[in-house]
Design a protein around this nucleic acid. Structure first.
Lengths: 103, 103
DNA sequence: ACAATAAGTCAAAAAAACATGACTGATAAA
DNA sequence: TTTATCAGTCATGTTTTTTTGACTTATTGT
């Protein structure tokens, strides 16, 4: 089964689905940070100016549902949760890279 | 927990600027239609489901300000206004094309 | 034991985005 | 002349998103 980002009936094209997914106050910044490192809730909350836990929580959940991030429970010493880019998420990196050149 | 705390240069990177520009209820659809043909206010209003003149008007203005669309007054026969993709706007097409493959 | 941190949830309030309907001014058609 | 279309603006509502702050459960640090 080809995994699509979302199956919204009226949503014809994938580009639109992606735009919708990445629109929201914190979403682009979250994605950008996830490209560099695995991210953590508390770190995002501190580092992204204007972030608040509710919005953050929803954004992470939506990225997870879309299959761009995966939640990982790290069971070692300081037991915590990380969100990592999935392969699908990584697939978007070259597109954003290319975008920098065009604009 | 050795968290690399990097400074967030919360100046918008171009990708973020584009995402912001294209987020809004009608924007992706408007852009998509503009890729195919010059677009007109009244046509968009009829063709895009859920469009209303206020939102449409603001969207077109923002695209214009961003340099993706240009407003052209057609002085011939049935005197009207068109919005055309600029060169900058056209530069985005291959990126969206590429996106369809990745998702 | 006590306080602090992590990763949240929930309800309510505030802010931002969007929709509605009345109106404008210019052109064109009946 | 009256009517209609085009491309909007404006003031006002409604809806959606975002923010706030109190609360939770589990783990860690002192």
């Amino acid at each position: 089964m080809t995994d699509k980002i979302q199956n919204i009936p009226n949503e014809t094209c994938p580009a639109q689905a992606l735009l919708k997914l990445l629109s929201g106050k914190l979403k682009p910044e979250i994605f950008k940070m996830a490209v560099d490192n695995p991210i953590r809730f508390s770190v995002l909350l501190k580092q992204i100016e204007g972030a608040n836990k509710q919005t953050l929580s929803i954004a992470l959940k939506e990225f997870e549902e879309a299959g761009l991030l995966e939640k990982v429970i790290i069971k070692e010493k300081p037991l915590h949760i990380e969100y990592n880019l999935t392969e699908k998420g990584k697939g978007l990196i070259p597109i954003f890279k290319q975008l920098e050149n065009v604009l």
